Simulated assay, not measured.
Amino acid sequence: MGSRRRTPYGPGNPGASLTVHPLEGCRGIRAAGEVGLATHTIWEGVLEQAVREGEDVYYLELSEVTFVDVAGAGALAAAAGRLGAGRRLVVRRPPPALRRTLEAFWPGLPAIEVTM
Rank of each mutant, 00 (worst) to 15 (best):
M1N: 12
M1W: 13
M1K: 11
G2N: 15
S3P: 06
S3R: 15
S3W: 15
R5Y: 00
R5S: 10
R6D: 11
R6C: 04
T7H: 13
P8N: 06
Y9F: 15
P11Q: 12
P11L: 12
P11C: 04
N13L: 14
G15F: 11
L18E: 08
H21A: 14
G25W: 10
G25A: 10
R27N: 03
R27Y: 04
R27F: 06
G28Y: 02
G28D: 05
R30V: 13
A32N: 07
G33D: 05
E34N: 11
V35C: 10
A38E: 03
A38Q: 01
H40E: 09
H40V: 02
T41I: 11
I42M: 13
W43M: 12
E44K: 15
E44S: 13
V46A: 12
L47R: 09
V51W: 05
V51T: 10
R52K: 10
E53C: 08
E55C: 09
E55R: 08
D56W: 11
V57I: 13
Y58R: 04
Y59K: 00
Y59M: 03
Y59N: 00
L60G: 00
L60H: 01
E61H: 15
E61C: 12
E61M: 07
E64P: 00
E64Q: 14
V65D: 07
T66K: 08
F67C: 06
V70D: 08
A71Q: 11
G72M: 06
G72I: 02
A73H: 00
G74P: 00
G74K: 06
L76G: 02
A78R: 15
A78H: 13
A78W: 04
A78F: 08
A78Q: 13
A79N: 07
A79Q: 08
A80Y: 05
A80W: 03
G81M: 10
G81R: 09
G81V: 05
L83M: 12
L83S: 08
L83V: 08
G84Q: 13
A85S: 14
R88Y: 07
V91R: 02
V91A: 05
V91L: 02
R92H: 06
P94T: 02
P95L: 10
P95G: 11
P96T: 12
A97L: 14
L98K: 09
R99D: 05
R99F: 00
E103W: 03
A104G: 06
F105Y: 15
P107D: 10
L109Q: 11
L109R: 12
A111P: 02
A111K: 07
A111D: 04
I112E: 01
I112M: 01
E113F: 00
E113W: 02
T115I: 14
